[in-house]
């Protein structure tokens, strides 16, 4: 039996004149956590919607769990659990009512449904919130309800669109632990879209997307190892004046990420020493690290990933990762 859970071949999609996806090819293996990483407008959400059967397939082929999406989207829907970027739970209903309503829509009969709801509420530590109105829950709890809802019918594939949108770091970590637990316990294939590096790094396999195309793919480690050298990040009180000095010193162009200047250098330790001995008094902090996924993106596209997302968001993420 094939190990491939989702395969997409030459998939293209456009909204009127605007091309959102161009000749996308990818394969998702069963039981993995698979990430679609790209900035806003890279086409990852369009691909997600095609997988979720919410958009008609215009060109190419998609097969999910061995079923052709064009011929039998209804059978595919039975295999999918979908969690959207914007919440799809009813804020006026209680947690249990939401799950009950959703389970009935998925054709589950009442008795097994009720025990499945209790099981999931237990799994996601929501048992004491069973009768709470969803609109009164915190963002993190609401996300957990979404996740429980997506898993009610024991789907083979869990699709998540930007799953940690609006979550604080603690809730985000907790949410991720739950996703990985589910994947390990039930062997669920998880496919998610994200623009957060930290989130992407936890995936087993990544597809980097830009302007509707797949630009690179592999495990995060393979992708990072595909770039030589190190990354040197420097924070200064007077970045505007220091930038040209450092650029000529290191013989490489700087790029801004938040309030830092980043340089890709062949030997990070030597570059750091050189910078500190020459203009160390003007440096607030300096850090040497292996190339990030963002560097991979820059290498392939020639553009910074953060050009399209809020710099503060990226900065906050990297700071959270450091802390």
């Amino acid at each position: 039996m094939s190990d491939i859970c989702i395969s997409a071949a030459s998939v293209s999609h456009s909204y009127g004149e605007t091309a959102a996806l161009t000749a996308v090819d990818l394969e998702v293996h069963k039981g993995t956590v698979f990430g679609l990483l790209g900035p806003n407008g890279s086409g990852k959400t369009t691909l997600f919607r095609l997988f979720a059967t919410l958009l008609p397939l215009q060109a190419g082929n998609i097969s999910i769990c061995g079923i052709d999406l064009k011929n039998d989207p209804a059978s595919i829907r039975r295999k999918l659990g979908v969690t959207f970027q914007s919440p799809a739970v009813d804020p006026r209903l209680t947690v249990a009512e939401n799950l009950l309503c959703h389970g009935r829509i998925y054709g589950l009969s009442r008795k097994p449904l009720i025990s499945r709801i209790d099981e999931l509420l237990e799994q996601f530590s929501l048992s004491d919130r069973k009768k709470s109105i969803v609109g009164e829950l915190s963002g993190g709890l609401r996300r957990r309800v979404e996740l429980a809802k997506g898993l009610l019918h024991r789907p083979e594939v869990l699709l998540l669109d930007e799953p940690s949108t609006g979550l604080d770091p603690a809730a985000r970590r907790q949410f991720w632990d739950m996703i990985h637990e589910q994947q390990q316990k039930e062997g669920t294939t998880v496919v998610l879209t994200t623009h957060l590096m930290q989130e992407a790094e936890t995936c087993a396999h990544l597809v980097l997307m830009d302007k509707g195309r797949v630009i690179s793919q592999g495990s995060p480690q393979t992708l990072q190892a595909s770039i030589d050298g190190d990354r040197l990040s420097i924070r200064s009180r007077d970045p505007v004046e220091l930038r040209p000095v450092l650029e000529s010193l290191l013989q490489v162009k700087a790029r801004n990420v938040g309030n830092r200047m980043c340089f890709r250098v062949p030997d990070g330790a030597a570059a750091l020493q050189h910078v500190m001995s020459t203009c160390g008094d003007r440096v607030l902090s300096a850090e040497v690290a292996c190339p990030s996924l963002e560097d991979v993106f820059l290498e392939v596209t020639g553009r910074g990933f953060a050009d399209d997302v809020l710099p503060d968001d990226v900065l906050q993420d990297s700071e959270e990762a450091a802390s």
Binding site: R77, L80, S86, V89, I105, Y106
Partner: peptide
Amino acid sequence: REGFLQGVLAAPVPRSV
């Protein structure tokens, strides 16, 4: 607007439901 509808559209039931 609240997103509930897309959850129903992704379910394995005909849209006439």
